[in-house]
Computed example of a mutant assay.
Amino acid sequence: MKPIWQFFNKNQIPVPSSEHWRSAIGGVIGGAFVAFLGKFIGEFTQVNDWAMASLGASALLIFVLPSSPMAQPKAVIGGNLVAAIVGVTCASWIPDPRIGVPIAIGVSILGMLFLNCLHAPAAATALSAVLGHIISYRFALFPVFIDSLLLVLAGVAYNRATGKTYPHQAPITTKVSAGDDGNSKEINEVLARYKEFIDINPGDLANIIRDVELHAYQQKLKSITCSAIMSSPVISVEMATPLEDAWIRIRKNHIKSLPVVDRNDRIVGIITLEDFLKYAAIDFDKTFGQRLQGFMRQSFSRASAKLSEAYPNAVGQVMQKTVRVISTNRNVLDLVTIFEGDGHHHLPVIDEHQKLVGVITQSDFVRAIHSSME
């Protein structure tokens, strides 16, 4: 068992120093806003107690932890109001503060949980009502309700001015998929197993989980190079290769493209199924081709000769000369933008001598992601 003093050395989650200053300045502005207006309202209504006891703690939540469920307007206003009513009631009916204090705290907590407006600092509001022997329910209206409302208004203005969403809504950091509702349900089920209150918005927790998973995948993919996932050896053709031969290779090997190389195995182009459909205009199925050629020879011997010359008959005539390639030492993570943004389905891989050594398809990329997840 670890010594108890080690638990006091636990570090908080690291936060930039700019956030420290933002939170502190927010507390000053929010506190000043409530103090000046609260004091003015107190003098106008001839009420001496113009500040509630939980003002500082509520300000901490609003300006330091604006995403906390306990810092939301319903929690701040509703929680303090419930606690004030409970505290005044206990002060009125229970003369002994030794009994009234614990009952006020417990009942105010129960009331906030029942009304779904849990606000931790509100327990101090109930406590102050009992210890101050406040028996007028006007205390719940002012200073408690008015101070809470003013503090929330200050929080809305300041947090939004400094780039925070308040009242808080979980930001969408990733694209929403059809299974996200199921994931949210699973998160709620897992949280329920802890059987305790966890001070985090479920939407924020879902985003954190997704970001952690994405970061983990990125770190794993960074260690994988293109040479590790590429398909090799590559089925390729040359510029002079007849189109019929290229078509047979595509059909036989069940592939969608053929890199075109020169005599030094350096890539000079690529031919795809789309190129055949767009330019070839001839069915290279052997049986149909023979029937078509026989029919054309019998019926239009001269016209067919001219027509055959008009059609391309070599790979170099229909290939795409602009080819996107990637080197063997490049990171697999670089393929994301290529496959997703540029619409590529297959990517030739070259070595340090610019020679074709492999090809990466979307299937290869998916397998790499799957293996990294495992």
Results as ranks from 00 to 15, higher is better:
8 F>Q: 03
9 N>G: 15
10 K>L: 12
23 S>G: 12
24 A>E: 00
29 I>P: 02
46 Q>K: 14
58 S>D: 05
60 L>F: 11
66 P>H: 03
72 Q>N: 06
72 Q>Y: 11
75 A>W: 00
85 I>M: 02
88 V>T: 04
90 C>Y: 06
97 P>D: 05
99 I>M: 10
101 V>F: 02
102 P>C: 13
103 I>P: 01
107 V>F: 07
107 V>N: 02
112 M>F: 08
113 L>F: 09
114 F>P: 01
116 N>Q: 12
118 L>F: 11
121 P>I: 07
131 L>R: 06
140 A>K: 03
144 V>T: 06
152 V>E: 00
157 A>Q: 03
158 Y>A: 13
159 N>Q: 15
162 T>P: 05
180 D>S: 13
189 E>T: 15
189 E>M: 07
194 Y>M: 12
198 I>C: 02
203 G>M: 03
204 D>W: 06
219 Q>D: 10
219 Q>I: 14
220 K>A: 15
221 L>V: 08
221 L>M: 12
223 S>F: 09
227 S>A: 14
229 I>K: 06
230 M>R: 09
233 P>S: 09
244 E>T: 15
246 A>H: 01
255 I>H: 01
257 S>V: 11
265 D>K: 12
270 I>F: 04
274 E>A: 08
275 D>G: 12
279 Y>Q: 06
284 F>W: 04
305 A>F: 14
308 S>Q: 07
313 N>P: 08
321 K>G: 08
325 V>L: 09
331 N>A: 12
346 H>C: 11
354 Q>T: 08
355 K>N: 01
356 L>C: 06
356 L>H: 07
359 V>C: 06
368 A>N: 12
370 H>K: 13
374 E>G: 14
